[in-house]
Design a protein around this nucleic acid. Structure first.
Lengths: 252, 252
DNA sequence: ATACTATAATAGCTTTACTATCACAAACGC
DNA sequence: GCGTTTGTGATAGTAAAGCTATTATAGTAT
């Protein structure tokens, strides 16, 4: 795929000036990705970004109100990009199982550098999404931001995945839940493998992404498979466990 | 269960002075929970907390180095508490399926107020863990903090859950991944149901927690069930999708 | 030639995060 | 009892982060 000039549509309320349209704007996107990856979101700020770019704090504030909206912009870009890649990959695929497999492959390897949107380093952006992505919606402003439409891309992406899940089994009761879970799991297990390896079987090696892909496939197939209604699922819960017993855990 | 005086063991490096041992310390725990819930982690700070308690910023800094370590302390307390509740509930339960069901029930309803550790409001703490929990390990210091043992409680919890999973199917290839996923899913879907409902089938009603419990049970049973090796899972991926096609998505 | 746009340069203000110092009272060691 | 440690409050101050305002200027569009 040769140098492709894509401008993904991002919610206009996320920025004050469209950063994809000017030199400085594109530099902001490009270098904010590198700097957030380097410093982490908390130490990252517009002053440092300005220094790195060779511009000024005030100039950057003309594009984004604050660093959280900039993060949200980047994450939205990522979601839109993944959705775009999924749509393209699914064209002319008809076997539901293959389509689901293809979706999972996109979810995981949107990481792998495979296009050239000049100013976005997708590998690094992926690392940011893995490490900081959840902060995009874990804050007190979610509801207000949701009303502004800042999460439509994520919801659309989730819905797309959910639909492919339903193609595989129209009776599956949790298509959206599984969809969002696959999206979250992908990020979590990449992060765990690297930083908290005891939380996952995925190992941090060259083939981490392939392992995650296998993990997601395994989960998805097992869950989506028609048959076995959740009969065993109603094992009677024992509400009368004796909670007064001392089992040796520390307490004083 | 009558007024039970439990002191959960929390990693000593998380605090400068043990907050469970003094009046001010317990007030810090009690009111930080309320304030973080009220303001969110970003707006929360030690100055406001001091005002609320009727103490001073400097005094609070004598207990915790900064608000992130305080959060980590609270989250650790939650993890320890959940593990304690699981251990107790599992005593005298022997049927693997019932044990797994019991574990899931603990994962979800550690929320429900059911004990009286005087100064910890578990309902509110649960909301914090749901809303801010992932921030405990999503930062540039994870690796250093992990070396200090700040996540042993979470890893132990995960391992406990993984063991119960393995009791149900010793051949299940992803016990830890499923365990951490169940823990994360519980929080995510409670959060989604309330703030981003299109990402889940769980609805925000009085019985949200029961719905989440059902969801987790459904996932767990389906996955843990012996049999069907992931045969269909290897549906050959189509690496040669024609990515040049224009499918109508916006680009310029 | 004029008006508009994007940016740089500079300054300043408020809040957050954190440290330091001193003083005082209760509890504790002997 | 006296001295010491421990917990707290009071006050002050510094550095960084977060954000706004003002002015000047170069390039572009009309």
């Amino acid at each position: 795929m040769a140098l492709l000039s894509v401008e993904l549509k991002i919610n206009e309320k996320l920025y004050k000036t469209n950063p994809q349209r000017t030199d400085l704007g594109r530099k902001i996107l490009q270098y904010s990705i590198l700097l957030i990856d380097e410093l982490g979101l908390e130490r990252f700020n517009f002053k440092r970004l300005a220094e790195r770019i060779g511009s000024t704090e005030a100039s950057i504030y003309r594009y984004f109100e604050n660093k959280h909206l900039l993060l949200l912009y980047l994450v939205n870009w990522y979601w839109e990009w993944m959705r775009f890649r999924i749509e393209i990959k699914l064209i002319d695929m008809e076997v539901p199982a293959e389509r689901l497999k293809a979706v999972i492959s996109c979810i995981v390897d949107t990481a792998k550098r495979n296009t050239t949107i000049a100013f976005i380093d997708e590998d690094v952006l992926h690392r940011i999404v893995v490490a900081e992505g959840t902060k995009a919606y874990h804050n007190k402003l979610v509801d207000a931001q949701n009303r502004e439409g800042f999460f439509v891309s994520y919801k659309a992406l989730c819905e797309k995945v959910a639909k492919v899940i339903q193609e595989n089994n129209p009776d599956f009761p949790y298509p959206r839940s599984l969809a969002s879970n696959l999206l979250e799991m992908a990020n979590n297990h990449i992060y765990f493998a690297e930083h908290l390896p005891r939380l996952t079987e995925v190992e941090a090696k060259e083939d981490t992404l392939e392992q995650v892909e296998e993990l997601l496939c395994y989960f998805a197939w097992r869950l989506v498979q028609p048959g076995q209604p959740p009969s065993g699922a109603s094992a009677k819960s024992n509400g009368n466990v004796n909670v007064h017993q001392n089992n040796g855990l520390q307490h004083s």
